[in-house]
Nucleic acid binder design. Structure first.
Lengths: 145, 145
DNA sequence: TAAATTACTTGCAAATTGCAAGTGGAGAGA
DNA sequence: TCTCTCCACTTGCAATTTGCAAGTAATTTA
């Protein structure tokens, strides 16, 4: 891409992303699934931001419809439910981590250590891979229990 | 970061990002500023998503308060106003482009050519730098007019 | 001097949110 | 078996937010 070419299309992928992530609660649920290893309704409900139960039900169903989560029986307890991240949401990790790096730089009260941004800038692919491995570890453990 | 260390803090940068970008309209305004070279109220209002004028006023002021935009007189016409991206919002570009790459992969009706994701994966830093250069070109031209 | 442009503000109905309480089914304990 | 709790929601309702239409004040253009 050279500087004479100006892409005219570039609003569209952004609008697509805005439709999913341009909602505070969907955004935070993706965080909980991708970074915090949360998988159950109760766990999502317990997040410090305090999502209300009707909104949680609404957003979980939205994220399922959008192909970001799958709703499955909890292997530990058949009467219970788990929400697992799909490949589509796992593929969102690089974008999510990018946003974390940016936020870490500008949030004056960030709790993220400087080593996080550093580790990402030294080895972005490795940092993403580490998070992916964590997700797979959590889900494999859960599914085989 | 090795696999024994599990960061406990990582919700917070995400919550910070959610406070800014976890809103459809703020998200799309950042797209307009960072990728479409839009700078004026009229231009924002003309975006195909059809933001209403009261919401636009509200979000522009929010983004200004958050340090994402600066509100300045239009150098071409003193009675008019320009909104320029700050360094903080320019630094958001990598995250925005990451989301575009992801969306391009999953949006079945994406208008983005395959070459976009390809060019980003071949040379992420170069792709970001190209967008940054575009922004600076637009703003320098505007400011010196 | 009249009309248009620009960046908003205002009013109001409709949609969405947050809070509290309720529901139905499964499992555990007595 | 009967109750109790847990779980994943649903329901009702007041309050906030949104979208639409219209209005406004300060220029600027014709």
């Amino acid at each position: 891409m050279n500087s004479n070419e100006k892409p005219q299309w570039n609003g569209c992928p952004t609008r697509y992303a805005a439709g999913i992530v341009g909602d505070k609660w969907c955004f935070l649920l993706l965080r909980d699934v991708l970074l915090h290893g949360k998988r159950t309704y109760r766990e999502f409900l317990a997040s410090p931001e305090g999502i209300s139960t009707n909104i949680l039900a609404n957003r979980l169903s939205k994220l399922e419809t959008l192909g970001m989560l799958t709703r499955e029986a909890d292997p530990r307890k058949a009467s219970s439910v788990c929400y697992f991240p799909t490949q589509k949401s796992k593929d969102f990790l690089p974008a999510l981590v990018s946003m974390m790096v940016w936020a870490t730089q500008y949030d004056e009260v960030t709790e993220a250590p400087a080593s996080f941004a550093e580790s990402f800038s030294n080895d972005p692919a490795g940092t993403i891979a580490w998070y992916e491995a964590e997700i797979d570890r959590v889900d494999q453990a859960l599914r085989s229990s």
